[in-house]
Design a protein around this nucleic acid. Structure first.
Lengths: 328, 328
DNA sequence: AACCGTGTGTCAATCGTTTGACATAAATTA
DNA sequence: TAATTTATGTCAAACGATTGACACACGGTT
């Protein structure tokens, strides 16, 4: 059995109230007593019962993270960086892989709701889940707009799309393929598409659109891409995520096109993993560290009820990582 | 304020005891009452207070996952598959990225211990952390041997190393480089090395060893690899993880060696990500689904106190994924 | 001598749920 | 009709920590 407050008190030779005072730092306390209590806690390896504390209205120090899937390198990095920052503040993170499945997401919310977690950070992409409104929990979101007043952090998707178009046009591309790795209605990352299209049209370039549902497998994507590549023979491709961009490069080569000579490719995300292990891929890099930082900061703002000056949207700057899938 | 048991009782027009009975399925209950109670819970969107239940000795339904870093594709996949299975059983997962840092791991254990989680699944690689023994929690581990009687699941590292050696020897390699992506003392994956060395020596092949500490960056690894590649001019490389294998391929090419003509490369892990997005890499594939399955199953065995017939070690079979980094 | 700040103790209520003991009443069965 | 079984209610004690009210020291100030 785990030691309880009373055990610590007995060992330290003080009352439970005093031990509680030491733990919660209230009232007057002599250095000697504190010392005795701490050493008793140490000896017993005492950990206060979280459950009991929560019942008193204290915080769980638990945050739910709802994302589509940590198998995506960008999400993995976002989750890891968030988790690091939460840990530094003494918080734990519950991981929820929604697989972009609204039902699963709803179930997760149910689990997290009520009194279980103190707050939620979500980067999942589903529409109109009423529990988000009901929960009454502090929530912040990544790359996702909500109806209600939930602060959203995202990279500058519009600028990213525009930049990708501008760079490829500058380097001679004229017939574009625009590949959306996942298609949702209210996701801000649709701006990646509109930004790209806008600039392309401005320069009189053609844009062929290809879109995949989130759950389409790489093999399905490959088959579709191969067909579209052969049919439209683009000389520039912009993908809204890096993994799809990798498939494009590979399928283009299989189809006999040279990258970047015949067709240039730019992806989006620029996770550390992609930067390190796919050295050829040019991509629009999201500032993941800043994103994690801001998400956590915003959440704590709401946790501490400083509802002051929280904006609805925070858009962080992106940058281009130019590598061999782009011409010099 | 969240609705509580009493609110549900009032709305349903029954006593709190009855509501509790419905929730916990004890005693006699008429269908009509159950219906009334369920609909009241629905209406109020009632969620029982986890904290209060835990205080009664119920389970938190919370499991801690301690792994080095979810940025590693294999770990991400293991974590995701574990999380899926836990979720299916109504459990939540707390994610802990230890970064292979013993202090961080110790802190995590402290957080998880006491009364906070019901069990722990760890794939982290640190030595002699006394809290593991103290915790008294059900623990199962992945690819890691413990002193105490903690069940360990791993892939057949020995066979994996042997297979890698045998295949490359068969395809003509004689001078090997053996690259360990991380070096720990008590990790079963050292068997990957010994298995490889054993077969190589048996066939009279030379083996040059290169080892990296866990936290060495890709750039450091690259620099070291380049130097070692030029110095020893191997015609076969086996890496204990896929990411390092990718670096080997890239650096070998930069050094003017052809893969697989001049040098063959085999990695280890074979995560879905690597299979999909690094189509060239040959690798020893761990059965991640089975591993996750077994880990969760073993944990639940201990959670339910069925301490029957738990083995110390569970070694699952591996297989070779042969692709272009190996000769035909 | 009266007063205050400091340090500690006792006591009891509280958080929300569970559970056992016990009572009661209707429906069912012997 | 009597004895069960079924269905529900009341009551109160847990679970472990927190906290406010209050008491009572002791030392040092005025």
């Amino acid at each position: 059995m785990q030691p309880k407050l009373a055990d610590v008190a007995k060992l330290a030779g003080v009352s439970v109230t005093t031990v509680s005072r030491v733990i919660n730092e209230r009232g007057y306390l002599s250095a000697a007593t504190k010392e005795k209590v701490f050493s008793a806690m140490q000896q017993l390896n005492y950990q206060p019962s979280l459950a009991a504390r929560v019942l008193q209205g204290k915080q769980f120090k638990l945050v739910g993270l709802i994302f589509a899937s940590v198998e995506n390198p960008l999400i993995a990095q976002v989750v890891e960086e968030i988790e690091n920052r939460l840990f530094a503040r003494g918080y734990k993170a519950i991981i929820c892989n929604s697989m972009d499945n609204p039902e699963k997401e709803q179930q997760y919310l149910k689990m997290l709701m009520a009194n279980q977690v103190d707050g939620i950070i979500t980067g999942s992409h589903n529409e109109g889940i009423k529990e988000y409104k009901m929960s009454g929990l502090p929530i912040v979101s990544y790359d996702r707009y909500f109806q209600t007043k939930i602060p959203t952090v995202s990279s500058d998707n519009q600028a990213g799309g525009e930049l990708a178009a501008r760079v490829m046009i500058e380097k001679g591309s004229k017939r574009f393929m625009l590949v959306s790795g996942s298609l949702e209605k209210r996701a801000p990352n649709n701006r990646r598409l509109t930004g790209f299209e806008h600039v392309a049209e401005e320069h009189g370039c053609s844009v062929q659109m290809v879109a995949f549902p989130f759950n389409s497998t790489p093999n399905i994507r490959r088959a579709t891409l191969r067909e579209k590549l052969l049919a439209s023979q683009p000389d520039g491709i912009f993908c809204t995520d890096d993994q799809t961009a990798l498939l494009c490069i590979q399928e283009a080569r299989k189809a006999g096109m040279r990258v970047p000579e015949d067709v240039q490719v730019i992806g989006y995300d620029g996770s550390d993993y992609v930067q390190e292990y796919h050295p050829e891929l040019s991509t629009i890099v999201q500032p993941v560290g800043d994103i994690a930082d801001l998400l956590v900061r915003l959440l704590f703002n709401r946790l501490q009820k400083n509802d002051d000056e929280l904006l609805d949207k925070y858009v962080l700057p992106i940058k281009l990582l130019q590598r061999d899938s782009l011409r010099k």
